[in-house]
C-alpha cells in the first residue's frame, strides 16, 4: 500500500509542474505590460522600467518562473493589480463558498443518482427505466447555465419561493443559507447525477448478470438482501472512481454556475478577474481550482486502491 501511495504521488508531480507552468505563463503571455497595468497610462518610461525591475519582469522567463514558484510555495500569491489586496487572502475568503457549493452539489447528486441508478437497473427495460434515460438525455444535452436560468425563472421570478442569487453563511442563518444554496446546488447536481445514474445502472446490470448473484438467487435469498448486500457492494467499487471524477468536474462547472447565481466563490472571482484584467487574481484562482482538482483525483485514486486491493499492483 505504501508503494502504491508513493507511486501515485510521483505520478502527480508532472501534472503539478505543467499546471504551474501554464498558470505562471498566463500573466506573461497576455497582451499588455503588467507594469503599465499597475502604474496606469500616465507613467513615464523610467517609472515603468523601475516597476518592471521591482516585479522581476526584466529577468529571463525561467528565473521568473522559479522565483514565482518559490513565493507560491510560501503562500505568497502577490497583490491584486487593481486594488493591491494580497491575493492569497482574497482566495482564502472565497474558497469556503466554492467548497460549500461543490460538496452540497456532490451530496445531492449522489442522493439522486444512487436510488435512480439501482431502480433503472432492477427494472431495466420498463417504462420507468425508459423515463430515466429520457430525463438523463435531456440534462446531458442541455447546458447547465440555461437550466439554472430556467430554475431562476420558475422558482424565483414566477413562484417567488427561492432567492435568485447571493449567499448567506451557514452559521449566520442555516435556513436562509440553505435557501440560497438550493438553486445553484441543484443546477450543478442534476447533470452530474444523470452521468452517475447511467454509470450505476450499467455497472449494476453487469453485476446482476454475474454467477454469484444467480447462486444467491438460487439459494432463495430475498431480493432486497441480494441487491443491498451482494450486488450493491460490488457495484460501488467502480462507481467511486466516477464519483471522484464528478466531484472534480463540479469544481470546474462551478465557475459558470457561480457567475450565474452571483455566488461569491473562487470561480466567480476568476471570471471577474479576467474581465478586470487583474491577472494576479486569475493566476491564483486557477492555481487553487486546479490544485484542488488534482488533490481530489489523488484522494480518489488512493481510496480506490484501498477499496479494491487489485489496483495497488503496478502496470496498467
Amino acid at each position: 500500500m505504501v508503494a502504491f501511495i508513493l507511486r501515485r504521488l510521483l505520478q502527480a508531480i508532472p501534472v503539478l509542474i505543467l499546471s504551474s507552468i501554464v498558470v505562471f505563463l498566463i500573466i506573461r503571455v497576455v497582451p499588455g505590460d503588467p507594469a503599465r497595468v499597475v502604474l496606469g497610462l500616465d507613467a513615464s518610461e523610467e517609472e515603468l522600467a523601475a516597476k518592471r525591475s521591482e516585479l522581476g519582469l526584466d529577468q529571463p522567463l525561467p528565473v521568473q518562473y522559479f522565483r514565482w514558484l518559490g513565493r507560491v510555495a510560501q503562500g505568497d500569491l502577490g497583490n491584486s493589480l487593481v486594488n493591491r489586496f494580497p491575493v492569497a487572502e482574497l482566495v482564502r475568503d472565497k474558497l469556503p463558498a466554492t467548497l460549500e457549493l461543490a460538496i452540497a452539489s456532490f451530496l445531492l447528486s449522489v442522493l439522486i443518482s444512487l436510488p435512480l441508478g439501482i431502480f433503472a437497473a432492477l427494472y431495466a427495460g420498463s417504462w420507468g427505466d425508459y423515463l430515466t434515460s429520457v430525463v438523463a438525455a435531456f440534462y446531458l444535452g442541455t447546458p447547465n447555465f440555461w437550466i439554472g436560468m430556467l430554475y431562476i425563472m420558475l422558482f424565483s421570478v414566477f413562484l417567488g419561493l427561492l432567492p435568485p442569487s447571493g449567499r448567506v453563511a451557514f452559521f449566520d442563518d442555516p435556513l436562509l443559507a440553505l435557501r440560497h444554496l438550493a438553486l445553484p446546488a441543484l443546477t450543478l447536481a442534476l447533470p452530474a447525477a444523470m452521468v452517475q445514474m447511467r454509470f450505476i445502472r450499467a455497472t449494476m446490470l453487469d453485476v446482476l448478470g454475474q454467477d454469484y448473484i444467480r447462486t444467491a438467487r438460487a439459494k432463495g435469498l430475498r431480493e432486497q438482501t441480494m441487491v443491498l448486500r451482494h450486488a450493491l457492494r460490488n457495484t460501488l467499487i467502480p462507481v467511486v472512481t466516477v464519483l471522484g471524477i464528478q466531484f472534480g468536474n463540479l469544481l470546474g462547472g462551478a465557475v459558470i454556475v457561480e457567475s450565474l447565481f452571483a455566488w461569491p466563490g473562487v470561480g466567480r472571482m476568476l471570471v471577474d478577474s479576467i474581465g478586470n484584467r487583474d491577472y494576479a487574481i486569475t493566476q491564483a484562482g486557477l492555481l487553487y481550482l486546479v490544485g484542488l482538482f488534482i488533490v481530489v483525483n489523488l484522494v480518489v485514486d488512493l481510496l480506490y486502491g484501498f477499496i479494491d486491493p487489485r489496483t495497488r499492483r503496478g502496470g496498467s
Binding site: P14, V23, N249, V255, L286
Partner: peptide, 24 residues
C-alpha cells in the same frame, strides 16, 4: 502519452478559461 495524461488531469472548462485569459 504523459502529456495527454497531464492534459486530462485538468477540468476542460478551466483550461478553456485559462487559454481565453491568455489569448484574449
Amino acid at each position: 502519452m504523459r502529456l495527454w495524461d497531464t492534459l486530462l488531469a485538468f477540468p476542460g472548462v478551466l483550461i478553456a478559461i485559462a487559454i481565453s485569459a491568455m489569448l484574449g
